[in-house]
C-alpha cells in the first residue's frame, strides 16, 4: 500500500513533465536533439538543486524564504573568492552551510517560525551578496564551467545531472536512516523525541544538507552563467517551493518526494519554454504559468481523492 501511494505521488509530476515535453517537441522539433535537450534543461539543474534543498527544509515542516538570496550569495562567492582564492572560497561556503545548520537549531530552540527567520536571513544574504559583488561581474571557476558545459555521450549533461541529483537525494531522504528520521521529524516531532533521538541533531543535519544543496545550486548556476550578479537567483525562492509542491511534496512536513522534486523543477523550467514556443504574449505568460501549476495541482488533488476512496473501500 505504501509503495503504491508513493508511486501515485510520482505519477502526476511524471505525467505532467511528459505532457509538456511532448508539447514542446511538437511545437519545436528542433528541441528533440542533444543540444536541444541541453538548452531546454541546463538552467533547470541549479533550480533542481535548490528545489532539493527546499525539500529538505520542508521535510522538517519548515519553509525557507531565503533560498533565492542564499543561492545568489553563493553565486557571488563562487564568481569571486572561489575563483580567485579557492581555499578562502571553500571556507566561506563551508561557513555558510554551518550557518544553515545553526539556523535549523536556533529555530527549534527558540521556537521561532522558520518563515520569519529565513525571511530575515534573506536580507542578510542579499546584503552580503551586494557587498561581495557591488556591480555584476566576477568569473566562474574553470572547473565549474567545465562541469556544466561538458558534453558526455548519449545524453546532455543537464539530463545526467538531473538524474544524479534525483538519485542522490532519493538515497539520502528515502533510503538512509537519517532521511527516515528527517521525514519522521516533519511528520511527528513528538514521536521522534520520545524515541530518544536528538531532534537538535536531525534538524542541524537537515538544514546543513539543505545548505549544501543550495551551495551546489549556486556553483552550478555560475558554471552556466559564467559570472554572477547579486540578484541572479532571486526567483529561486518561489521556484523551489513550487517545484517541491509540483513534485508531490506537501507543506505539512514529512511528505516529500526527492525524485518528484527534481521532476517538478524540470517541469517548471519546461513550462516557461513551452509558453514561449506558443508565442503567448508576455503579459499573459505569468498567468499561463500559474494556470499550468493549478492544473497540475488539481490533477493531484483528484488522484489523492481517488486514492483515499480506494483506501476506504
Amino acid at each position: 500500500m505504501r509503495r503504491s501511494s508513493d508511486t501515485m505521488r510520482l505519477l502526476v509530476p511524471v505525467l505532467s513533465l511528459a505532457a509538456l515535453l511532448a508539447g514542446v517537441f511538437y511545437l519545436q522539433p528542433r528541441a528533440m536533439s542533444y543540444t536541444g535537450l541541453n538548452l531546454l534543461f541546463n538552467l533547470a539543474v541549479p533550480i533542481a538543486l535548490a528545489t532539493v534543498a527546499q525539500m529538505l527544509i520542508m521535510a522538517v515542516n519548515d519553509l525557507d524564504l531565503s533560498m533565492g538570496t542564499f543561492v545568489s550569495f553563493v553565486a557571488c562567492v563562487t564568481a569571486t573568492f572561489l575563483n580567485d582564492t579557492p581555499l578562502l572560497g571553500i571556507a566561506i561556503l563551508a561557513a555558510s552551510i554551518a550557518v544553515y545548520a545553526i539556523l535549523g537549531v536556533v529555530i527549534y530552540l527558540r521556537n521561532l517560525p522558520a518563515i520569519v527567520v529565513t525571511l530575515g536571513m534573506s536580507f542578510v544574504w542579499g546584503g552580503l551578496a551586494v557587498l561581495i559583488l557591488p556591480s555584476p561581474g566576477g568569473e566562474a571557476p574553470a572547473w565549474a564551467r567545465a562541469i556544466m558545459t561538458v558534453k558526455p555521450p548519449f545524453a546532455p549533461v543537464a539530463i545526467f545531472a538531473s538524474v544524479l541529483i534525483a538519485v542522490v537525494a532519493h538515497m539520502i531522504v528515502m533510503r538512509s536512516s537519517l532521511g527516515v528520521l528527517i521525514r519522521a521529524l516533519g511528520g511527528n516531532a513528538k514521536t521522534v523525541e520520545r524515541s530518544g533521538t536528538s531532534i537538535l541533531k536531525i534538524r542541524a543535519l537537515a538544514y546543513g544538507l539543505a545548505g549544501l544543496f543550495a551551495v551546489l545550486a549556486g556553483v552550478a548556476l555560475v558554471g552556466l552563467a559564467t559570472s554572477a550578479d547579486a540578484n541572479i537567483a532571486l526567483r529561486y525562492t518561489l521556484l523551489s517551493i513550487a517545484g517541491v509542491i509540483l513534485g508531490g511534496g506537501e507543506f505539512i512536513g514529512g511528505r516529500v518526494s526527492p525524485i518528484g522534486a527534481v521532476i517538478g523543477a524540470l517541469t517548471l523550467t519546461l513550462a516557461g519554454s513551452f509558453l514561449s514556443f506558443l508565442h503567448i504574449s508576455p503579459d499573459w505568460q505569468i498567468g499561463a504559468q500559474g494556470a499550468i501549476l493549478i492544473v497540475v495541482l488539481a490533477l493531484r488533488l483528484l488522484l489523492n481523492r481517488l486514492e483515499s476512496r480506494g483506501a476506504t473501500r
Binding site: G36, D229, I232, L234, R235, S273, S276
Partner: peptide
C-alpha cells in the same frame, strides 16, 4: 530576472532565430 532571461535566450536558440537582439537584465549574468 537574469535567470529567466537566460532561459528565454536559450529558448530562442531552439526556436531557430538567426539573430537575437537583447536588452539585458544584467551585463554579466
Amino acid at each position: 530576472q537574469a535567470t529567466e532571461q537566460a532561459a528565454q535566450i536559450q529558448n530562442m536558440i531552439l526556436q531557430g532565430y538567426d539573430a537575437i537582439v537583447v536588452n539585458a537584465a544584467s551585463p554579466t549574468a
